[in-house]
Computed example of a mutant assay.
Amino acid sequence: MYPAINKPAAVLHWLNHVQTDAEYIVILDADMILRGPITPWEFKAARGRPLSTPYE
């Protein structure tokens, strides 16, 4: 068994302590497999608008 990890708190901490000029920040689970490009504009990603997409 392994301890639970608080991803939302970790992401918030990172966002509050990093300086980046990245246009998009993608947060993935460690067990995800990428089978194609990540295209945020296809899902209408925008500054200050977090979003999620369905698994396909």
Rank of each mutant, 00 (worst) to 15 (best):
G36K: 12
V26Y: 07
K7W: 06
Q19P: 00
H13P: 02
A10K: 10
I27E: 06
I5H: 14
P8F: 05
Q19M: 04
M1S: 15
W14L: 11
K7M: 11
F43E: 12
T39I: 15
L34S: 08
L51Y: 03
H17P: 02
E42F: 04
P3N: 09
L15T: 00
Y24L: 02
K44Y: 11
P3I: 03
L15R: 04
R47N: 10
Q19E: 12
A46I: 08
L15Y: 00
D31A: 14
D31S: 12
L28D: 00
A30I: 01
K7A: 13
I33K: 15
V26L: 10
Y2W: 05
L15P: 01
K44L: 10
S52Q: 14
A45T: 10
R49D: 06
P54T: 08
S52T: 15
P37F: 06
N16D: 13
G36W: 01
W41A: 13
E23P: 00
A10F: 07
D21T: 13
A10L: 14
G36C: 05
A9N: 07
H17A: 06
P50C: 10
S52A: 14
S52G: 08
Y55E: 11
E56T: 02
D31I: 04
P37S: 08
R35P: 01
K7N: 03
A30M: 04
L51E: 02
Q19V: 04
L15M: 11
M1V: 11
K7G: 00
A9F: 00
P37W: 00
L34H: 06
M1Q: 12
P40N: 03
H13L: 03
E42R: 11
T20D: 01
D21V: 04
R49F: 02
D31N: 12
T20E: 02
I5C: 12
P8A: 01
Q19C: 03
A30Q: 04
V18M: 06
R49I: 07
W41I: 12
F43L: 09
W41F: 06
A10S: 14
Y2A: 13
V11N: 01
A46M: 11
L28R: 04
V18T: 15
Y24E: 05
E42K: 13
Y24Q: 04
